[in-house]
């Protein structure tokens, strides 16, 4: 039963809430209690810009059982326009359309299902800007 920890991550998964270091401006996504850049412990909550650039990616052909029905699917590292980095699936395109440096929007999609009877889990995915 993953409901408690799923619920805890909702601000990040649904609306890209990050912590911005009050001292050096580092964007922590997900939020952290201490800044890895300057050691400061005070952050302000901000929402990341839902657009960014693909830094690297792969197309997964062999997945864990939870994702087996969805293969092949693409996953990439995206840098948002405000400089935070995250891992997300890249969807709604053919794998050969994906390239490092291409622009994407981050949108809400269903990420996984907790079996047949458990909860549906939602979060950000990337779609190519067209």
């Amino acid at each position: 039963m993953i409901v408690p920890r799923y619920t805890r991550e909702i601000p990040q998964r649904y609306r890209l809430e990050a912590g911005k270091c009050k001292k050096c401006g580092y964007l922590a996504f997900p939020p952290r209690v201490v800044c890895p850049e300057c050691g400061n412990r005070r952050f302000v909550t901000v929402r990341l810009k839902p657009a960014g650039t693909i830094l690297t990616y792969t197309v997964i052909h062999v997945a864990e059982d939870n994702f087996a029905a969805e293969t092949p699917f693409a996953v990439g590292v995206v840098e948002t326009d405000d400089g935070a980095r995250l891992t997300a699936q890249i969807v709604d395109c053919k794998p050969e359309e994906i390239e490092i440096g291409k622009r994407v929007n981050l949108i809400l999609r269903r990420i996984r299902k907790e079996g047949h009877a458990g909860i549906l889990q939602y979060g950000y995915k990337a779609v190519l800007q067209r």
């Binding site: 969807v91 809400l108 269903r110 939602y122």
Partner: peptide, 13 residues
């Protein structure tokens, strides 16, 4: 709908 789309994701967009 894509495999990751449903009434909720469509509504959100």
């Amino acid at each position: 709908p894509g495999m990751d789309e449903d009434t909720i994701t469509i509504s959100v967009q």
